[in-house]
Write a protein that binds this DNA or RNA. Structure first.
Lengths: 248, 248
DNA sequence: CGTATGGTTGAGCCTCCTCAAGCGCTGTGG
DNA sequence: CCACAGCGCTTGAGGAGGCTCAACCATACG
């Protein structure tokens, strides 16, 4: 699953061509890097270090100095905000090709950690920002990324502020269908819930128990099918998920 | 309060100097425009139309074509997301100097409306985006703006997903103190809640009644003082608001 | 085999929502 | 000038949705 980059690939950039590590990078196609010209890619390559983060390990703690950012090559990260007494809210989920980190901030306000073994291309934050200044096309891509993330965050604010548990679960499942759904053999759509019940709860602003109960209820109603405790499931009635999410 | 710009200021840009309308613009100091060079400002000026939005009027409806964006010169806007059955969530409040609109989107997903008489400098969206491409410094400013908005949105997601009513109110009041607080004559900090109870509820993901009750409770506890139904109030015990927001 | 982890399910409770009534202010029309 | 409607806000009573606490099950792992 993970690509076979060494932990510290320092192969020198090849002048005039796509640098070796980048050429073989799994994220080359859909990442920020995709629309960067050769010069920009070479500059990035000189800065970047390939790094593998074991499952559960954190990339950066809220409150620590914000020294690094990265491109996510393979795996998954969660970005969490916390209250002082330890309540957690997953503020974003990161997938291959996504930008990782908080730019232009001295100290990190969010904790970023790996949901599974995760492969990323890490840069010193300051140097990355300087490179950005010299490559307007990269800056433009990042602007697009930031605006997309902002749109996402706003949709989630609506869910967290105004939707009940059932609607949040329906919306979450529909997001998964849209992002990773594949037709199931016997009809319906197969999806894999990429995170645990607890993480789903932290993502949707609910508790583990409520998430579990709502999923069970969807199963009892024949809308969703899954083996007990399983993250692989198939959506049998996508239409009914839509009517749950959009009532009246 | 509002500046006296005509509804349609089409005075031609002055080559080599700050265009007349911009020079006298109240937002010139802290807006996107502030860090744009002469050439960029001239380009923007050629595009912009000064426009006054009466209180309550909408700048753009969710679902409509997304033809315009703007710089907020004076007044206040709210940006709302809605469910299909009419529940509303205020997703952002906009103040003078803020950028208004959704870039790079064919159709608007959010409704933007005026909370009071509001003065803005509106641009055709596509033309604005093209101008952006030619002025990397503007693009950089917008990136900063977008990242700041994203940071805000994430803090609000934590509040909406994980904080109770009392904590949300405390956080809201502390935000106002930080943004607009002025020392009160008899001690404490004077603030003006800039929106109605109903809008506060839509902003915090609560109901009008809960907002009202929580404010009354803070008053009864001597933390906050205000006349019945009044939006002007003084925070008597800022420290206690902090301990409400950050328990344990 | 015992423990740990993740998930499900149940019982009871609490916070916040819903519904309703009432207050004070403003603006309007008779 | 007063009556009245409308709006924003407050306050109360009751109910429901989701949280808390707890028990239990299945699987993985040492």
């Amino acid at each position: 699953m993970l690509s076979h980059a060494s932990l510290l690939d320092r192969s020198p950039a090849v002048a005039g061509g796509t640098p070796g590590r980048c050429a073989s990078c799994g994220a080359r196609g859909n990442a920020l890097c995709a629309s960067v010209d050769e010069a920009g890619l070479t500059a990035l390559h000189a800065l970047g270090r390939r790094r593998i983060l074991p499952s559960g390990q954190v990339f950066n703690w809220a409150g620590d100095r914000n020294n690094h950012c990265a491109m996510l090559v393979d795996g998954m990260l969660k970005v969490t905000a916390s209250t002082s007494d330890g309540r957690e809210q997953i503020v974003e989920l990161l997938f291959p090709g996504d930008f990782v980190g908080e730019l232009f901030e001295e100290d990190a306000t969010l904790t970023i950690s790996a949901l599974c073994e995760t492969d990323l291309c890490a840069y010193p934050r300051i140097a990355f920002e300087r490179t950005l200044e010299q490559h307007p096309r990269m800056e433009r891509m990042l602007l697009h990324h930031a605006l997309a993330a902002l749109g996402d965050a706003r949709a989630r604010m609506l869910a967290l502020g105004r939707r009940n548990a059932r609607e949040r679960i329906a919306g979450f499942l529909l997001d998964l269908v849209e992002r990773t759904g594949r037709p199931a053999p016997g009809g319906g759509v197969r999806i894999a819930i990429p995170i645990s019940r607890g993480e789903t709860a932290d993502y949707l602003g609910l508790t583990i128990e409520t998430v579990s109960r709502q999923l069970s209820r969807l199963k009892a109603q024949g809308i969703l099918a899954f083996a007990k405790g399983d993250r692989d499931c198939t959506v049998l009635r996508e239409d009914r998920l839509h009517t749950i999410l959009n009532p009246v």
